[in-house]
Design a binder for these strands. Sequence first.
DNA 1: CAAGAAATTGTAATCGTTTACAACTATCAT
DNA 2: ATGATAGTTGTAAACGATTACAATTTCTTG
Lengths: 334, 334
Amino acid sequence: MATIKDVAKLAGVSVATVSRVLNDYDNVRGETVQAVKKAIKELDYHPNFLGRTLRRLETTKILVVVPTISNQFYSRVVKGIQTAALAEGYHAMIAITNSDPVVEKEFIDMAKRKLVDGTIFLHTTMDAGKLSKFAASYPAVSSCELVPEADISTVSIDNFQAALDAVRFLIEQGHQRIAFVCAGELYHSSQLREKGYRAALEEAGLPFRPELIFNEGFTFNAGRRAAKRLLELPELPDAVFATSDSAAIGVISELSNHGLHVCEDISVMGFDNNQIAEYYLPSLTTVSQPQFDIGHKACELLIKKIRDLACENECILLPHKLEYRNSVKKRRVL
Amino acid sequence: MATIKDVAKLAGVSVATVSRVLNDYDNVRGETVQAVKKAIKELDYHPNFLGRTLRRLETTKILVVVPTISNQFYSRVVKGIQTAALAEGYHAMIAITNSDPVVEKEFIDMAKRKLVDGTIFLHTTMDAGKLSKFAASYPAVSSCELVPEADISTVSIDNFQAALDAVRFLIEQGHQRIAFVCAGELYHSSQLREKGYRAALEEAGLPFRPELIFNEGFTFNAGRRAAKRLLELPELPDAVFATSDSAAIGVISELSNHGLHVCEDISVMGFDNNQIAEYYLPSLTTVSQPQFDIGHKACELLIKKIRDLACENECILLPHKLEYRNSVKKRRVL
DNA sequence: CAAGAAATTGTAATCGTTTACAACTATCAT
DNA sequence: ATGATAGTTGTAAACGATTACAATTTCTTG
């Protein structure tokens, strides 16, 4: 493998001059530049990044810690991150943790060991204390699934308001017994959405029924499990609000297996607005999150942090939107 | 940021000794080890990876070049890669190119500049010449979407045989007019599958009808477009074989919009066996690819290459399998 | 207790680059 | 011819680790 020395020797100049050519300095004579470029080509030389990185102490890489990429939600956020990163000359590297703290720790180590300039967490298993401490010493941003009380810049939607809006809509359509499929205490977003759900019931004067809360998770199978349990209730709900599109589809799938027609017999609403929400039959009424923008903004905040670790933390909420499709029964207009 | 020097000073030893402690050498006195570890803890020191990497000229990172992660197919392959990598002490980093040659080039540069030890392409925009040249100088493996004639280790399924099996199955179920939704010349896999499709027709003595070939692509919308065109045919086909599950679902969705019932009125078969194939209504009969295993094997081959760049190239074909579900009409048993 | 062996530690070179600084060359006004 | 100036180029010291080799200390044994 050719190094800068080989190039220097072949071009008959010093390594410093080669380096200057490589970095487009304008204080090198035209002829010299040509000679160096010729040597580079001849040797098929590619500067070793580690040398530069070590010297400059910057990698122009950022790490994105993701629980999974099977979920389209995250893949869209990642795309937003990557776009913003590229625009500023950074490269986004994705680390999939499967929410395994051990794996996550390994990747965080990469950040601590300066293999990347900064880290974006789309979900972390760290608690507020650990995360705050990490963010104090290394550029980092938390997004999507936040850690309450952590001292770090964040980007997400207003999960409380989004759920409130969704359930309000269901109520407006005449639904009263509304089941809620959520992911439990482990996910802050789920808790906030549950608060929104309750707030909507309360403002409409509807009773909160604990038996309609299904703490099963975000996945398709979680939705299925919830639907199975729900079908055993003495009285069926009018509507189901699931905190993810996957779970919503799991619900629909299971209800269909039992001969129920979603929309006609029972309404189902999702969350996220993944592609599947649009493509499913019936297409899914859902809460749309600006996934790309979330990623984009998170990356911008991170780069700000990379440039000035001491800069003020920002907590950004981006707007959500209801997406009206065919899984929710419309109020009959009299 | 603390460096090894700071630790050495605080512990009252040389940097060499600290390094030995860091790397678990057994020729350091117990007390010294303790002193060094204490200093490390006190300074919250994390060895800078770049120093080590530069010295050892290995990064223990591998790069996975992916066109997209929105497609579950790739995310499962990536999971296989990551698992195999971790088992050998490597970390997989994912680079999303959107099949943009410029972006891909940037990431390939990372490999050339030694920021990673090796590269796995799940799809590349390079031609055979470029890819072969790259693979000759840098550890690399090509997988999933291969480049014909390229000199590089590969892992995939036997796309010809898989399509042959699929179409044979459709024919066995009594279908005769079988449409084919594929991705055209850009994708070698698609071409091979078309050959398999033709071979199956031929061996059954069925005519090949060019008007039943729909070169639209792998996506949901590709499937929709194909279905739209297909609905304008003077005579409807009995079955549609799509080269991806997404496209198959696009077909189903569009056909449903026109009041056709998939399975009863027309059969649809997919390819890949993504989660959606199982979850869709109707669930999708499809060709299952061993996605995890493909990734796993590809990573193994890559690590072999990293350890010995000159080792023989291997071209591995993994077994596929038909997954029988509810989108294909069964032959009536008389 | 001396001498050699073994265990432990330190010194300094090294990986491939960047960059401060010095040094050299050419140009030009005086 | 001289000195100042600007434009090029080279020298050598970083960056933060690892590691060959040398040096030191400790242990063993006759």
